[in-house]
């Protein structure tokens, strides 16, 4: 049971099996295609993870710790901007859950502990719906949406 209610809960149904969707969240080439970033980590509990731009600049836009990893069902990680990495108050939390529904998968992204009115909140609320919708399009059709359609993290 979470201590606090989540700030946002985004859901998308993807016509692909659960393993494919899980892989789609971690695979460097796939995330580059629909997210413009790759996620760098060994994905062990307690390890750091970094959300890195795929444009060759290797700029780290988001960083955090892996809190829970239960492939291919659930991952929980903390989420913060590198410039605020020293400040635990700025840290928010992302939970991604996958549930198999026959041949399809339900993907839920929950974001908690965001600071109301912060730039991070704005970025996150614009970013996640576009990212998961883009992942859906990529896995279902092999195509991504126009890159300039969705905001950068």
């Amino acid at each position: 049971m979470p201590e606090r209610a989540p700030d946002f809960v985004y859901t998308v149904f993807i016509a692909a099996d659960q393993e494919t969707v899980w892989n789609g969240l971690l695979d460097r080439e796939l995330t580059k295609a629909y997210w413009g970033h790759y996620n760098e980590s060994d994905w062990k509990q307690g390890s750091r993870w970094e959300h890195v731009r795929s444009d060759g600049s290797d700029t780290v836009d988001i960083t955090g710790k892996v809190i829970e990893m239960d492939p291919p069902n659930r991952m929980v990680f903390s989420w913060t901007s590198p410039k605020n990495a020293h400040d635990p108050d700025q840290e928010s939390r992302v939970t991604i859950e996958l549930i198999a529904l026959g041949p399809d998968t339900r993907l839920t992204v929950t974001h908690s502990d965001l600071i109301a009115g912060s730039d991070m909140e704005k970025g996150v609320t614009q970013g996640w719906p576009a990212v998961i919708s883009n992942l859906k399009t990529l896995l279902e059709t092999g195509k991504t949406l126009r890159e300039d359609d969705w905001p950068k993290a």
Partner: peptide
């Protein structure tokens, strides 16, 4: 899928899910 839900204890909370509108 316009509303997603999360449980806090026994309480079901409702969230606007803008993905289909997007």
């Amino acid at each position: 899928n316009l509303v997603s839900t999360a449980w806090r204890g026994r309480e079901k909370l409702h969230y606007l899910n803008p993905v289909p509108i997007g």
